[in-house]
């Protein structure tokens, strides 16, 4: 299994593109995303994760989100998601 992808603390506009690039490199494998350092997630960060998860799922791979803090989970839920639903690539 691959090394977990460690997310940055802020998943906002400047972070979205690097995150997408990092995930594109991992397409075709199972991806573990370590959200332990994430303090905030915005809509752009969120959509990268969901898109990646959906793409992985379409090719028979899966995304796992680990170490999500309560605060992060709360932010996800405010946008209509849970870590699990994101990992499924659905809302």
């Amino acid at each position: 299994m691959n090394e977990p992808l460690v997310l940055q603390s802020k998943l906002d506009l400047p972070a979205a593109d690097p995150l997408a690039t990092a995930l594109k490199e991992r397409l075709g494998t199972d991806v573990t995303v370590d959200a332990g350092a994430v303090a905030s997630i915005g809509a752009l960060g969120l959509q990268v994760l969901i898109s990646a998860a959906a793409s992985l799922k379409a090719t028979g791979h899966r995304m796992t989100i680990i170490n999500a803090s309560d605060r992060l989970i709360e932010q996800m839920s405010q946008m209509g998601f849970t870590p699990e639903s994101i990992a499924e690539g659905t809302s």
Binding site: A20, T21, K24, Q47, S51, A54, G80, S91
Partner: peptide, 18 residues
Amino acid sequence: TIECDLRDLPPLEALAAE
């Protein structure tokens, strides 16, 4: 009750991150 609409979201390969 918040529902996100993902209809327009492309797969990662086609996604423009910003």
